[in-house]
Amino acid sequence: MSTALNLTNRQNFYIKLKLTKTLVNYKLGTILRLFLKEKMAKKSGKSQKLRNYAKKTVEKPQISNVYLARIKSSFKNFNLSNPLEFNLNNTHAFVLNHDDIQLGAWHILPHDKQLKPSSNLQEHFEINIEKSFESKKSITILYLHGNTNDRSTYHRIQLYKYLSNLGYNVVAVDYRGYGDSTGEPTEIDVVRDALFTYDFIKRTAPWTTIYIWGHSLGTGITSSAARTLTEKNRAPEGIILEAPFFNIVEEVELHPFAWLFSYNKILFYMIENSLSKLNLQFRSDIHLQKVSSKIMILHAEDDIIIPFHQSEKLYDIVKNKGVSSNLTFHRIPSHHKCNHQNIYLYPDLTNLISDFIN
Rank of each mutant, 00 (worst) to 15 (best):
Y14Q: 14
L34E: 14
F75G: 03
K27G: 02
I317A: 04
S274Y: 05
E253A: 11
L327Y: 08
Y14A: 07
G45L: 10
N273W: 13
S262K: 13
E130K: 07
S118H: 09
M296S: 06
K277E: 13
K294M: 08
H255K: 05
V318M: 10
I201T: 09
K202Y: 12
K131E: 11
S216H: 07
I317K: 11
S293R: 00
P83A: 00
N169K: 03
T197Y: 07
N169I: 11
P83E: 02
I210G: 03
S224A: 13
I129R: 08
N233S: 14
L241V: 04
L345D: 03
I221K: 08
F94Y: 13
H335T: 05
Y14M: 15
H155Q: 08
D189F: 05
L288D: 06
S324Y: 00
W213K: 06
H336K: 05
P61L: 06
F78R: 15
T148I: 07
Y269L: 09
H98T: 11
K294T: 01
H145M: 07
R151Q: 10
K76C: 05
F75R: 07
N77E: 15
Y263P: 12
S276H: 12
S274W: 02
N339L: 04
T153A: 15
S118R: 01
F200T: 06
L103T: 04
I129T: 09
Y198K: 01
W207I: 00
I129E: 08
T197Q: 09
F200S: 00
I357N: 04
F35Y: 14
R51W: 12
Y269H: 10
A4M: 10
P206S: 10
R234H: 14
I271P: 00
M270C: 14
K76N: 12
L109D: 04
L28E: 01
W259F: 15
I239K: 10
K265F: 13
G218A: 06
G29V: 06
T230E: 10
L88T: 02
I157Y: 02
E242N: 12
N89R: 14
L275P: 01
T219C: 07
E272A: 13
V58N: 05
N77Q: 14
N89Q: 12
N6C: 12
A225E: 00
I201R: 11
K39C: 03
K16N: 14
N97A: 08
S81E: 11
F75K: 11
L144Q: 08
N279R: 15
L142D: 03
L280Q: 12
K232F: 01
V58E: 00
G177K: 00
K232N: 14
A225F: 03
I212K: 04
A205D: 09
T186I: 03
V318W: 08
I63L: 12
K16Y: 09
L217V: 02
N339A: 12
I108C: 06
I71N: 05
V252K: 04
G322T: 11
E184Q: 15
E130F: 00
I129V: 15
A172L: 08
I286Q: 07
V323E: 14
V249N: 13
I31W: 02
G45Q: 09
F329L: 15
S164L: 04
A243S: 15
P333C: 09
S216Q: 08
P185T: 13
E272T: 09
H336C: 07
Y53S: 12
L142Y: 01
T3Y: 13
K294G: 05
K16R: 15
